[in-house]
C-alpha cells in the first residue's frame, strides 16, 4: 500500500514535470527536466534498481543537466526558445511516437531476453548489469565511448577561438624564476 502510494506520487510528479519541460522558458524547463530525472530515479529505487537510479541522477541530473543549464545561460536564449519549441512540435511529436513504438516493440517482442539479461532478483544489480554490459554488449559499449569522445573533441573544437590576445604562461618557466634575478647596481656618474 505504502509503495503504491509512493509510486503514484512519483509518477504523477514526473509526468507533470515532463509536461512543464515543454511549456516553460529555457532555464525553468531544464529545472523541470532535473525534477523528472529525480522522480524517475525514485521510481527505479522502488523497483530495486539502485544502480540505475543513481546513474540516472549522476549522469543526467548531475552532468547532463549542468551542460543543458549552461546553454540558455550562456547563449541568452529567452523567449525565442519557446517559440521554436511550438514550431517544431510536429517534429517533436513524430520523434516521440517513434521512440515510444520502439520501446513498445522491444517490450513486446523480447521480454524474455530482458528477463534473462538483467535479472532484478540478483541482490547486487551492479554485478548483473556489468556482466551483461561487458560481455554481450561489449562492442556497443565501446562504441558509445567513442561517440562521447568524438563529442568531447567537437566541443573543444567549437570553443577554440583564434584571434584573441590571451597571455599564455608556461608553468615550468614560471617556477624556474627566483629572487636571483635582482641585480644590485650603482648609478655611475655618466648615467646621472
Amino acid at each position: 500500500m505504502n509503495e503504491a502510494l509512493v509510486f503514484y506520487v512519483l509518477a504523477t510528479f514526473s509526468i507533470i514535470s515532463a509536461v512543464m519541460v515543454v511549456f516553460s522558458c529555457a532555464v525553468n524547463s531544464v529545472l523541470f527536466l532535473i525534477m523528472v530525472f529525480i522522480s524517475v530515479s525514485g521510481l527505479f529505487l522502488l523497483l530495486g534498481a539502485e544502480f540505475l537510479a543513481m546513474m540516472l541522477l549522476i549522469i543526467y541530473a548531475g552532468a547532463f543537466a549542468v551542460l543543458l543549464l549552461m546553454l540558455p545561460l550562456m547563449l541568452n536564449i529567452k523567449e525565442t526558445y519557446q517559440h521554436t519549441a511550438v514550431k517544431c512540435s510536429a517534429f517533436g511529436v513524430t520523434v516521440g511516437l517513434l521512440l515510444f513504438s520502439c520501446l513498445a516493440f522491444v517490450l513486446k517482442v523480447k521480454p524474455q531476453r530482458l528477463e534473462n539479461d538483467v535479472s532484478l532478483a540478483v541482490a547486487n544489480n551492479v554485478k548483473a548489469l556489468g556482466e551483461v554490459l561487458y560481455t554481450d554488449y561489449a562492442y556497443l559499449f565501446q562504441l558509445c565511448g567513442m561517440v562521447l569522445f568524438v563529442a568531447i573533441v567537437g566541443v573543444i573544437m567549437l570553443m577554440i577561438r583564434n584571434g584573441m590576445e590571451i597571455k599564455e604562461h608556461k608553468i615550468a618557466g614560471q617556477i624556474i624564476r627566483s629572487a636571483d634575478e635582482i641585480e644590485l647596481k650603482q648609478l655611475t656618474d655618466g648615467e646621472k
Partner: peptide
C-alpha cells in the same frame, strides 16, 4: 636603472652608500 635618490640626490642621499635593485622582466 633610474632612481632619483641617486640621479638627483636631495638632502643627504649623496652621502649615503646604497645600491639600486634592478629587475629583469
Amino acid at each position: 636603472l633610474w632612481d632619483l635618490r641617486k640621479a638627483q640626490p636631495y638632502d643627504v642621499y649623496d652621502e649615503l652608500d646604497f645600491e639600486i635593485p634592478i629587475g629583469k622582466y
